[in-house]
Design a protein around this nucleic acid. Structure first.
Length: 550
RNA sequence: GCGCCCGUAGCUCAGUGGAUAGAGCGCCUGACUACGAAUCAGGAGGUCGCAGGUUCAAGUCCUACCGGGCGCACCA
């Protein structure tokens, strides 16, 4: 389809030049029509250039249509509406996509809109102080799918998980484990539980595991000095847990980047020095501030507190510097909804350090609220009220959960109905897509069982409108992926796959395949095989399987 | 108060400045003696939060307002 678009655009350009308008190339666009009956492709160029050409759009469109140079691609052109040009392509030309898909298999859909640019996507980055929650699952699904889609569109994408294992919170986790250990020893700790120490019951499991792994370390050998030891250990336990759950969710990272390493390499101090040399550090009230207001942030930010310790922001700034120093052309952060107040300072520090700001893309993953019956519950890890991602996967299944997260725009807030959490009933639209594939598998199975020889595939026999619709959809697949990649919008893919599945189901109810005479049978088998390939490839971009039987 | 996100069918949500705003769920009516009915065909259901503006053209862009959410630490 992209080929046809380029072909038509060139023809339009040539015709306008012949009329003496050489400056209009940038106004030419050939788009997919939103309405049926408006052809396979449409152009609004006559409307766009009316001001310059001083020709009424309807008149120009009619003239272009009248003089259109017919060839093997465009069957006919029609001027319509206020001055649109609607193009109908030769069915036989469209049908070639079937051969193309069958030759290229799972490579079909690839393009080079990414120009091999190296991209780093950082996502999830859940703190290793507790289990991952539902919103982490949303980020995981979106980030992973975005990476798959961008790879397909010609970017070279790396996935990274930033592990915050260096700060205060690890101490706090150690504190919580310590308290749980004392509780296990029979001590009453609830009434004196400090407010900012994680109260979640999940810490008990970790404490028990510690006790099991270190039976020789008696409780009375542990004290407040042990928090760091306990916290480091706990952080590793949770990171392992995160790795396991994410792998189960179909998400693999190229690298787990540890904040601790940055701290140990003194990269954080180095960042402060760099900013200081550039004149963006101010000492005030016993603290050291980064003058981020100069770069559009709401306020200046503390980097070194008056007690001499660094804020969380500093290693993260060092991490971002490191990303750019590694030569990535696009640095994409997927941040949780509670972090959008953080965007300003990250952008500020990247700019202050002299990195190109337009290569930093920060996307906020929308809030996931929990709907319990009719009551909205704010999920809070610190308060201990949340649904672990693990439970969602167990209840809903990987395919269903991923689809649920991927079918909507990543930044939209969503309310998660717990009663809907059991997504494995037929209401989940992912089944609609998978069912189309399973049906094709079923037909191909039967054909293989009864296959009696080779009849050449003659695509000229595919002349029905429902067959044509499938060809048009198949030919759009690479464009859908390219656009999803460029817009960083994975949700285009589920939508497209639903359309393709719908077109297939309609075709399937209306037309027979194996019962037809051999020529038509082979042509239709080729068609549905191509549909199956695209469904499989498309679902794979979402990290969703296509079962052969359901 | 300031900043960011969101406001589209009863519900959950799509929608690239273009033509008559779409899908799923729910509701109603039909369709299997035929390759899988987890399907198909059809119907009802809309002031695109409100008001201005830009444009040949606005759900889409701009401004103000209303409503919801989140964030505004020498926490992470």
């Amino acid at each position: 389809m992209g080929e046809a678009q380029a072909h038509i655009a060139q023809a339009l350009d040539r015709m306008l030049r012949d009329k003496g308008f050489a400056q209009l190339t940038s106004y030419i666009s050939v788009d997919r029509p939103t309405e049926e009956g408006h052809g396979d492709l449409t152009s609004n160029v006559a409307l766009k250039v009316a001001r310059i050409t001083k020709i009424a759009p309807k008149e120009l469109a009619a003239e272009l249509a009248r003089n259109w140079p017919h060839d093997g691609i465009v069957e006919h052109v029609k001027a319509a509406g206020a001055g649109f040009l609607n193009f109908t392509l030769h069915t036989r030309w469209l049908a070639e996509v079937i051969n193309y898909v069958r030759v290229n298999r799972e490579r079909y859909g690839a393009s080079d809109v990414g120009h091999s640019a190296r991209v780093l996507i950082e996502f999830v980055s859940a703190n290793p102080v507790g289990p991952m929650v539902i919103v982490n699952g949303r980020a995981a699904a979106v980030g992973d799918s975005m990476a798959r889609i961008m790879n397909k569109a010609g970017y070279v994408v790396h996935r990274e998980f930033y592990v915050n294992d260096g700060g205060n919170q690890v101490l706090t986790l150690g504190h919580a484990i310590w308290l749980r250990l004392r509780e296990m020893a029979g001590e009453e700790v609830q009434s004196t539980w400090p407010e900012n120490v994680y109260p979640g019951a999940y810490v008990k499991d970790v404490a028990e595991q510690w006790h099991h792994d270190h039976p020789e370390l008696l409780l009375d050998q542990l004290n407040e000095q042990s928090w760091e030891l306990l916290g480091d250990w706990g952080a590793r336990v949770f990171q392992k847990q995160h790795e396991t759950v994410l792998r189960q969710f179909g998400v693999e990272f190229d690298r787990w980047f540890h904040e601790k390493e940055l701290r140990e390499a003194h990269a954080a101090e180095a960042i402060i020095d760099r900013l200081d040399r550039l004149g963006y550090i101010m000492n005030s009230e016993g603290a050291r501030w980064f003058l981020s207001e100069q770069f559009g942030d709401d306020k200046n930010r503390v980097m070194v507190k008056s007690d001499g310790t660094m804020t969380y922001f500093v290693p993260d700034a060092a991490y971002h510097a490191d990303k750019f120093d590694r030569g990535y052309q696009y640095v994409i952060d997927l941040l949780g909804p509670d972090h959008h107040g953080y965007v300003g300072r990250i952008r500020a520090v990247v700019e202050a350090l002299g990195y190109p700001l337009d290569r930093l893309e920060i996307l906020i993953i929308g809030l996931v609220r929990l709907l319990n019956g009719t009551e909205l519950v704010r999920m809070s890890k610190r308060k201990g009220s949340f649904v672990p991602l693990e439970d969602l996967i167990a209840e809903a299944g990987v395919d269903q959960a991923r689809y649920f997260f991927l079918e909507r725009a990543p930044e939209t807030p969503m309310d998660f109905d717990l009663d809907l959490a059991k997504l494995h009933d037929a209401k989940n639209p992912v089944y609609y897509i998978q069912y189309a594939g399973a049906r094709i598998h079923g037909i191909l199975r039967q054909w293989q069982d009864n296959s009696d020889g080779t009849v050449p595939v003659d695509l000229n026999l595919l002349v029905m409108p429902l067959e044509r619709s499938l060809m048009v959809l198949l030919s759009r697949f690479p464009d859908v992926i390219a656009r999803a990649a460029l817009d960083r919008a994975p949700q285009y893919v589920p939508r497209y796959l639903t359309d393709l599945a719908s077109a297939f189901h309609g075709f399937y109810r209306e037309h027979r395949i194996l019962d037809e005479e051999p020529g038509l049978r082979q042509a239709r088998l080729a068609l549905i095989e191509a549909v199956l390939i695209v469904l499989t490839t498309g679902l794979d971009l979402l990290g969703i399987s296509l079962p052969e039987r359901m």
